[in-house]
Design a binder for these strands. Structure first.
Length: 912
RNA sequence: GCGGGCGUGUUGAAAUGGUAGACAAGCCAGACUUAGGAUCUGGUGCUUCACGGCGUGAGGGUUCGAGUCCCUCCGCCCGCACCA
């Protein structure tokens, strides 16, 4: 009987669906294990073979953990709000909900073919009102909370109001609070709310007609679409993520994530410990203090000028009348630059002198104040002290504008470039002279604090998240405006659903698309017109999976107490500074308010590598319709053309299929080598335009889902990026066929209950040990190899099929190749799904050999091997080896210095 | 520039400091076949007729022993980037 994967796979996939095999419930009698994939955005292009890589790995772990007796939560859903569906809607008029639904259906059918063990009853879609009710709910909670720095956590805003009323808080006195109007009170509270509205400089993307978050912008272009992004002042909803900076940083230490990912987050959070210092300034006879931030207080004696950010509010008051025109012209020029231009012009330093001067608080020097866009308004105080000798940016500026450079470290050479390293001995620095830089930094901080010139200060790079998008296809804000004051729509009225509108374009007067919904009001009050960004819906979805149909709460305390957090999260590294920060923030916020029991959502995180495409090329001789094979192309002038990889097998072109592919190739002629047309190849991003997309459906058609699953794992380490290459997929397919044949004698299924031999048991238990170890280390490629070795070994023994060996092997292979294993499991006479069988017990003693092979080396060079009984002790091994005839040759004319015996492995004899 | 990672056959890749290249692909030879993109067997790092020698980006170090640990350099990939 042949291995007929087609009928097996469709049979078991429909059985799993009918029986709801993978439906999961809270079950306190079993330990829980929560395995989560980053849910996909259902794009119009469907899945390619890269997408399922992580899903296959997580499915293997899920199925493995089930075999190990865990109650496994393994859900899937869709991140369904987003820009592409909306842009498609603008182009075609089709409602983004329809587009999304169609795409989801396609994704689902593709996912189903691969045989995942998801509990589909727990599916969530972020665009479903029953789901986004809870996104809106969380927003209202954030609106209704403030971050109490003394407690380091979020608290209800009512507690802050109580403080204002009784004792006052910060600059708000009880009297002032009581006297304030509704609008004024709202404005005051906005300075504290976790979700707040405020004016800020935002990344405005004209091409998309919306604001973007920092992680949605790369190199000054929008990540989606690649449109230019400019800085613009706008009033936007924001989340006070920055309040959590320190907690987000600190708890990274306890997470089981890769170092590189944690490091990325640390950089993004950007903790910087330095000093804030006051410099007195004078401008047209007026004087005022200016606060700067520096991490190098030790370099104060080298300050030769100061610089303000163009957007700094200090600029007007620090501009001398005589310099006003010049400064304003500069500000105007800066404003016109896009973010991209500012970045690309890094080396073109620009700036303008304000006419004002500052006084160095330590040396008393009088130094000029400049304005330049190399200083950022958003970081520190927007003003710096410039130390050209020891900061490369200040150095470039000083060189360009011919400002003095004072070296502060003995022996450093600043004639060509600045000396940025924090090492050496200080000089030209008053009381710091002679100190090591590291000590000088501390001494200078102490000095500044003691003299009242400034204070230690920690700065963070993490910005608050801009939460408004001027778009249609997102969660509406549950906010209405009463006399211009934003007010929450009551929780009991959630979800506030997205209204239908006539067109998805922004309206002519620049309002977001929702501006078209004229009769969309709350009791006659206008509702917020912007919608929430993509990360809103994905920030707490892992919590919703725990209790997805609950209408009363995001997640019930019972379900949350059982499932707690995600034990294993698998997904791409591209979410490092977006989703994975926002989710952690969101979770910590809910934790502060007592809605969830864990402070961190994702205990272990694994980033699967990207699967790149492998493109094939044909070479057309210029001016002809003749194509020359790769090896011969150097003799001709050719054009490289992408050929669809479905026309190519192992780099050999199917010339007939190529002719039929497109009309322009119908009359193609070929210059062959060895009767074949060999194509060139290259590793590129998998994309339609390069004709290198491999669809998992095709692989399932030719080889089956089990082969696809095994092959994706066999390809190499999970975390590594690698090109998709079908060379080698036959090997995996062959393995499954061999495995299948182990159960049959010719055409009859004939597994016997006979007792296994010692050799068979050894093969089995080696495999058990290897699989357990490898899955814990996410080394799935070596696990697959271990199966291949085990099957090869069994075949080599030429014994009859035995239940005691084959049954545990079916169980162990089932996480990797579930369909074939279900089928064999049933043939073995079981009624229950193999998914809930018990993983075999590992008996290490059965894998131990009676004898073992020692590598015998002299001075570290292996000369021969010796088979010796396992039981021999070190001395006996030494004696036995030295007595062996092969050893005589190497012992001739030398004396033994020492002998090192590594039990079971090595005998090294050191001779002289 | 800063941070993280990597560098092993023809290819994908294995190797708790202990016989480098497991497993798979490819290639070569053979068996069974009318046939084979089926199946099975054997071979396959380089070099040498052979004994042997040489081999994990380059160089140095630690060690009885280094792909693995340490230092320097080279190359590649990823992330961040005027963050004071």
């Amino acid at each position: 009987m042949d291995y007929d994967f087609k009928s097996i796979e469709s049979k078991w996939q429909s059985r799993w669906a009918e029986n709801k095999t993978f439906k999961t419930e809270v079950d306190p009698s079993k330990p829980k294990y929560y395995v989560l994939d980053m849910f996909p955005y259902p794009s119009g292009a469907g899945l390619h073979v890269g997408h399922p890589l992580g899903y296959i790995a997580s499915d293997i772990v899920s199925r493995y953990k089930r075999l190990k007796g865990f109650n496994v939560l393994h859900p899937m859903g869709y991140d369904a709000f987003g820009l592409p569906a909306e842009q498609y809607a603008i182009k075609t008029g089709q409602h983004p909900g329809i587009t999304t639904q169609n795409n989801i259906a396609r994704y689902r059918s593709q996912l189903d073919r691969i045989g995942f063990s998801y509990d589909w009853d727990r599916e969530v879609r972020t665009c479903d009102p029953a789901y986004y009710k809870w996104t809106q709910w969380a927003f209202l909670k954030m609106f209704d909370s403030w971050f109490d720095p003394s407690a380091g956590k979020a608290r209800p805003i009512s507690e802050l109001v109580a403080k204002f009323e009784s004792t006052g808080y910060e600059d708000v006195t009880p009297e002032a609070w009581k006297a304030a109007s509704e609008k004024e009170k709202s404005d005051i509270l906005m300075r504290y709310r976790i979700a707040y509205q405020g004016e800020t400089s935002v990344n405005w993307c004209e091409g998309l007609g919306t604001v973007l978050a920092n992680d949605e912008v790369k190199d000054g272009l929008s990540v989606r679409g690649g449109y230019p992004v400019v800085q613009k002042k706008m009033t936007q909803w924001q989340l006070r993520v920055s309040a959590y900076a320190s907690r987000l940083l600190d708890s990274l230490d306890k997470l089981d994530w890769t170092d590189s990912l944690k490091e990325m987050q640390r950089n993004w959070i950007g903790k910087s410990e330095g000093t804030e210092m006051e410099f007195m300034t004078e401008c047209d006879g007026r004087s005022m203090p200016v606060t700067i931030f520096t991490t190098r207080a030790d370099t104060v004696f080298g300050v030769t000028f100061m610089v303000l950010a163009p957007e700094s509010p200090l600029v007007p008051s620090l501009t001398a009348a005589a310099n006003k025109a010049e400064v304003e012209a500069y500000l105007e020029a800066v404003k016109k630059k896009t973010e991209r231009e500012r970045i690309s012009q890094t080396k073109n330093v620009s700036g303008v002198f304000t006419g004002a001067y500052g006084i160095n608080p330590l040396s008393g020097e009088r130094i000029p104040i400049w304005v330049s866009d190399y200083v950022l308004a958003g970081y520190g105080t927007g003003a710096i002290m410039a130390v050209p000798a020891h900061d490369s940016r200040d150095y470039a500026f000083a060189r360009k504008f011919k400002l003095p450079i004072i070296p502060l470290i003995e022996g450093c050479d600043v004639s060509e470039q600045s000396f940025d390293a924090k090492e050496g001995v200080m000089c030209n620095s008053g009381f710091l002279n002679g100190m090591q830089v590291k000590d000088a930094i501390e001494a200078a901080k102490d000095y500044v604090e003691a003299k009242g010139l400034g204070r230690r200060k920690t700065n963070w790079r993490l910005r608050d998240a801009i939460f408004s998008r001027q778009r249609y296809w997102g969660e509406p804000f549950p906010i209405y405006y009463k006399d211009g004051v934003p007010c929450p729509i009551p929780e009991s009225e959630l979800p506030l659903t997205l209204p239908e509108i006539s067109s998805y374009k922004p309206s002519a007067d620049g309002e977001p698309p929702l501006g078209r919904a004229k009769d969309w009001t709350w009791h006659g009050y206008p509702i917020e017109k912007s919608t929430m960004p993509g990360f809103a819906g994905s920030s707490a979805y892992y919590l919703r999976y725990m209790d997805p149909r609950n209408d009363e709460a995001l997640v019930s305390p019972e379900a949350n107490a059982y499932w707690k957090d995600v034990d294993l999260y698998i997904g791409g590294t591209e979410h490092a500074t977006g989703h994975l920060i926002y989710s952690r923030f969101w979770n910590k916020f809910l934790y502060d308010l007592g809605y969830v029991c864990e402070d961190e959502p994702f205990r272990k995180l694994v980033n699967q590598g990207m699967i790149q495409g492998r493109s094939n090329f044909v070479y057309r001789i210029v001016g002809t319709n003749t194509y020359v094979s790769l090896g011969l192309k150097d003799g001709y002038q050719t054009t490289e053309i992408h050929a669809d990889i479905s026309l190519v097998h192992d780099d050999v072109l199917d010339t007939e299929a190529f002719k039929a592919w497109m009309p322009e190739f119908a009359n193609a002629e070929f210059i062959l080598e060895d009767g074949k047309y060999i194509c060139g190849s290259a590793v590129e991003k998998m994309s339609k335009s390069m004709f290198n997309v491999v669809n998992p459906d095709q692989v399932c058609d030719t080889y089956g889902a089990d082969t696809l699953r095994l092959y994706e794992m066999f390809l190499g380490p999970l975390e590594q990026s690698k090109p998709w290459d079908t060379k080698g997929i036959d090997g995996v397919n062959r393995f499954l066929k061999k495995f299948w044949r182990l159960f049959f004698d010719r055409d009859t299924f004939c597994v016997s209950d006979e007792a296994p031999t010692k050799d068979e048991l050894k093969i089995l238990h080696k495999l058990i040990g290897k699989e357990q170890e490898d899955i814990d280390n996410f080394s799935f490629n070596t696990t697959v190899s271990a199966f291949m070795i085990a099957v090869n070994d069994l075949v080599a023994l030429k014994t009859a099929p035995k239940r005691a060996i084959l049954e545990p092997m079916v169980v162990m292979l089932s996480p990797f190749a579930p369909h074939i294993c279900e089928e064999l499991w049933e043939q073995l006479g079981h009624k229950e799904s193999v998914a809930f069988a018990t993983f075999p017990e590992y008996d290490k003693s059965l894998t131990v050999e009676d004898s073992c092979t020692y590598a015998v080396s002299f001075n570290g060079k292996t000369r021969f091997t010796a088979d010796l009984p396992k039981s021999m002790d070190k001395e006996a091994v030494e004696a036995a080896v030295l007595a062996m005839p092969q050893a005589a040759k190497w012992l001739e004319g030398v004396s033994i210095v020492k002998v090192i015996v590594v039990p079971g492995k090595i005998v090294n004899i050191v001779v002289r």
